[in-house]
Design a protein around this nucleic acid. Sequence first.
DNA 1: TTTT
DNA 2: TTTT
Lengths: 151, 151, 151, 151
Amino acid sequence: MSGTLNKVMLIGHLGDEVKIHYFEGGNCIARFPLATNETYTNRQTGEKVTNTEWHNIVVRNKAAEICEKYLSKGDKVYVEGRLKNRQWQGEDGNMRYTTEVHVQDFTFLTTKNESLQNTQMQGTAPQNEPSRPSAPEVPIDDTEEDDDLPF
Amino acid sequence: MSGTLNKVMLIGHLGDEVKIHYFEGGNCIARFPLATNETYTNRQTGEKVTNTEWHNIVVRNKAAEICEKYLSKGDKVYVEGRLKNRQWQGEDGNMRYTTEVHVQDFTFLTTKNESLQNTQMQGTAPQNEPSRPSAPEVPIDDTEEDDDLPF
Amino acid sequence: MSGTLNKVMLIGHLGDEVKIHYFEGGNCIARFPLATNETYTNRQTGEKVTNTEWHNIVVRNKAAEICEKYLSKGDKVYVEGRLKNRQWQGEDGNMRYTTEVHVQDFTFLTTKNESLQNTQMQGTAPQNEPSRPSAPEVPIDDTEEDDDLPF
Amino acid sequence: MSGTLNKVMLIGHLGDEVKIHYFEGGNCIARFPLATNETYTNRQTGEKVTNTEWHNIVVRNKAAEICEKYLSKGDKVYVEGRLKNRQWQGEDGNMRYTTEVHVQDFTFLTTKNESLQNTQMQGTAPQNEPSRPSAPEVPIDDTEEDDDLPF
DNA sequence: TTTT
DNA sequence: TTTT
């Protein structure tokens, strides 16, 4: 315990399909962009303004596979996780910086693919899913042996 | 996954010592009251008002033991968990209802017992601690075989 | 500022219609039950178990009227607020205790009444709505002159 | 209402002093870096690893002035807000991207400057402070007329 | 009393 | 690039 807290909670829509990448050891990582919207009225002009924020969502291993299987562009989802900054060297030699949301928990709020109905139940059991009183049947290997890969 | 969310996040002070109870199988449960305060100014009278809410905190197994070991009355702590309603029959034959916060994660914000400094690191690794990329060294048995006990 | 935090975040379904009550000064309060579900597999028996928790949701003034207008039994909603304990004397003379969630923010995730489409935009502007950069057009009177009424 | 949620909750330590900037109309914006830590044990090597994430915190107007007045490098604070991405053109002509946490609520968890004790009460009344039953005495102008400035 |  |  470090006495700190790093928590993000988002409800938004997928702006694109889930992209998954498998590592040699069998681990995998999934990524997708998530849009949240804010609407307000400009006080000076009186016009209604909508701002969209795009978030880089990152999911690992079993949870990644569930997302890849059941989520599609446009779906609404709740994700909970941590902010993580990542840097890498761009092709032009300059450093690039990105902030990602590394998912610890999620729940589907709509899915276009309605075939998941029953499967959906275990769909919310990501890595070390905190809201499960009993242990998940499938042990999830969370080893971050990919940590220095440019993802 | 059920498509729902049940989350509570509190920062408050312990109103009493942690009380722990061990079950036969080795499981245990710890309880303590946590106070949060709200201060506002009454618009009509202009006086400052402070309201204190008391929350029933429930922690299980390894996390319970960490709390019992390191937290004391007056300590400040962050807890995250789920709301759970519990009912039982009182001595007068009437049903009693209580709402509890079942802890999934926590972090110490102050402790009177400063001896924990180093131990503190694993102090924040409750059951299925979600913010850990690697697995906790000690597997935590979360079996709720005590679920129908009146706690 | 009191150095404490009292926050609840729920996604659930309304178990009943919104009940609204108006006070003399024009203030009002709305209440509805909200269900969250938890599903897990019993480790011993292998059977799937679903637990439902019921939460007492309380909304005030303008936000209350929006809820009453647009939410119906069965709708899914996100609510954010504070835990508040309330006690009152029952008809049998015994004290009763309830824990409520006093809403500070909310967003509709589905509504059966689809006629709200456009109105919905301001539907998420409860009292002192925090996610609005510009001020809401309608000042909301939040005076808690009803605090000792048995609601 | 947009049916989305964009929420960040952090407990961390200030990595530097609060920097405040005043605009012509009297509005102001404060910024400071906030560190959160994550500690875990590498499963392969068995060594303990600590990761620090740095977050760009942005506060506006009255809340900004309170932060500037009472927070110092090293202080621990809870902040709640929204993720906001900002881009601007760097001196080299390349676009720069940053993710910021725009604060909606906060509470001091420690302060080196203990003189605030009493003042602290209003220290937690940022813009449209959601946890206040009564209205703040000082109306806060939240107009974002500075939105296209490179902050 | 909700929902999947 | 989402959604309402």
